Simulated scan of single mutants.
Amino acid sequence: MKLETFYRSFAVIAVTLTLFLQAGPAVAEEVTHSFLACGQKTYMVDGDGNTIWTYPHSTRDGYVLPNGNIVLTLSKGKQYSGGAVVEVATDGSERLIWKGTQSEVNSAHPTASDTFVITEAGSKPRLLEVDRAGNVVVEFPLECQTENFHLQTRMARKLDDGTYLVPHLLDFAVKNYDRNGKVLSSIDTTVKNDPERKIHSWPFTAIRHGEGHTLVCCTNGNRVVDFNAKGENVWQLTNEDFPGTWLQDPCGGQVLPNGNFVITSYKVNRSKIDSPKLIEVNQDKEVVWTYRSDSPVGIHHFQILDTNGLKLTPPVLK
Score class of each variant (00 low, 15 high):
104 E>F: 15
121 A>C: 13
91 D>G: 10
75 S>G: 01
72 L>T: 04
63 Y>W: 15
102 Q>L: 01
65 L>C: 07
121 A>I: 02
87 E>S: 11
106 N>F: 11
121 A>W: 02
106 N>D: 07
128 L>N: 05
114 D>L: 06
101 T>A: 07
119 T>V: 13
66 P>Y: 08
121 A>G: 00
70 I>K: 12
85 V>R: 05
129 E>P: 02
119 T>S: 12
104 E>S: 06
63 Y>D: 11
70 I>T: 15
74 L>V: 11
67 N>H: 11
89 A>I: 00
125 P>A: 08
65 L>Q: 12
82 G>L: 03
80 Y>E: 05
73 T>K: 06
127 L>K: 04
104 E>P: 00
78 K>M: 04
92 G>H: 09
80 Y>S: 04
107 S>E: 03
107 S>C: 15
108 A>K: 05
105 V>H: 09
106 N>C: 12
67 N>G: 09
88 V>G: 06
111 T>F: 07
96 L>H: 05
87 E>V: 14
120 E>F: 09
62 G>T: 02
124 K>A: 13
84 A>W: 00
72 L>V: 08
120 E>H: 10
122 G>L: 02
63 Y>R: 13
101 T>K: 14
118 I>S: 00
73 T>C: 14
83 G>M: 03
95 R>H: 14
103 S>F: 12
128 L>G: 05
99 K>S: 14
76 K>H: 10
82 G>P: 08
111 T>Y: 11
64 V>I: 12
76 K>Y: 04
